[in-house]
Design a protein around this nucleic acid. Structure first.
Lengths: 192, 192
DNA sequence: CCGTAGAACGAACGATCGTGCTATAATCAC
DNA sequence: GTGATTATAGCACGATCGTTCGTTCTACGG
């Protein structure tokens, strides 16, 4: 990896953290340049436009979710254990500094047309499809009843994750994780 | 109501709609002035600062939620019907133009200290307390099992609402309401 | 070790940000 | 209807926004 690529990675890391705190739209070249100790123009040259920066931040977080959440969970046994692993690792991921930037972006860009919104929509669809597939596997394995709709279950699980985000990040409720665990247990029990 | 107060209401309505779309932080005096066909300074004089405008937008939406969601639901029979009424009306509320500004603000300001965040936290706490109380009433009425933790149930319900917001506003899924209805049914069935 | 490609910089651009000041126009109390 | 109050407009400010340009420095292949 050349010097430029390395610097760009470092910028995207800082940008991800910042975006989680103040949103993708709130990202500012000047602020980001100050945090990375680069000049505005030097940083800007890496991306060519703010929108491109935003898109690359999304991409970076997408691959991080795959690496830190999805791929490890796929090593768990199929069905219910895999679902639990997926949720558990997502909760870890969202507990990091600033929470999950994709979640923040999902609520920030839900009414702002453009390439950024389009990408957020696609990523959120992908994530929900992943959840759905794992739930469907649970049905196939016999962990869940045959009449369980995997999509519905996936949406319910997504609700647990979003509620955790609010309880943990906004309300700083120390029981947030416990609530999420209980919520998942309830859903799984109801699907059994 | 004098002319000034009337104008201010009109500004806050437009500001609420705009805030739901681009966020409280993305609110801009200039853009808001253009939409309300006022001069920047004329509009600004009503609030004195952007932060005050943001806080008044929060306040306005708080009273609207009370008027459109909570108060009508409190006229339903205690317990489970009241919980269903509360959720149903919230879904109606969040289906309006731009979604619920409080939800957007909850994810936008979860890491930005200051009076705005403080108010968002307080409002979110109030809403969760309302949900919790209604759930507790369901236990007291015998609709839910005695060992149901009202707080936990309230958080789970909040998850259903947040998932609806994503499915409806971001993903434009026509089945969003159905998912939410099913999610609530599942939670209630599990609490019975 | 040199030549060149690429990385980073400084300065500046027009636009817009939030915010004051001052003047005028509209509203309201009496 | 007149006088006081209030609402709105106009203009300007310093700061910062995203972006461009030309230059300097640095890394790296030959």
């Amino acid at each position: 990896m050349g010097k430029g690529a390395h610097t760009r990675e470092m910028i995207l890391d800082e940008a991800s953290e910042l975006a989680a705190k103040i949103g993708l739209g709130g990202l500012t070249i000047g602020e980001l340049a100050a945090r990375t100790e680069l000049s505005k123009s030097g940083l800007f040259a890496h991306f060519g436009s703010k929108e491109s920066l935003q898109l690359q931040v999304l991409e970076r977080n997408s691959t991080r979710i795959i690496d830190l959440v999805i791929r490890p969970a796929l090593r768990e046994p199929r069905g219910e254990p895999r679902l639990r692993g997926l949720v558990g690792r997502w909760l870890d991921w969202a507990s990091r500094n600033g929470g999950c930037p994709l979640v923040a972006a999902s609520f920030e860009f839900d009414d702002q047309p453009g390439p950024v919104r389009d990408r957020v929509v696609a990523l959120q669809r992908d994530w929900l499809d992943t959840l759905t597939t794992v739930c469907a596997t649970g049905v196939a394995e016999g962990h869940f009843r045959a009449d369980v709709d995997p999509r519905r279950l996936a949406v319910d699980v997504e609700g647990v994750l979003l509620a955790f985000h609010v309880m943990h990040r906004l309300l700083s409720d120390p029981a947030a994780r416990e609530y999420a665990q209980h919520g998942l247990d309830t859903l799984i029990a109801a699907a059994r």
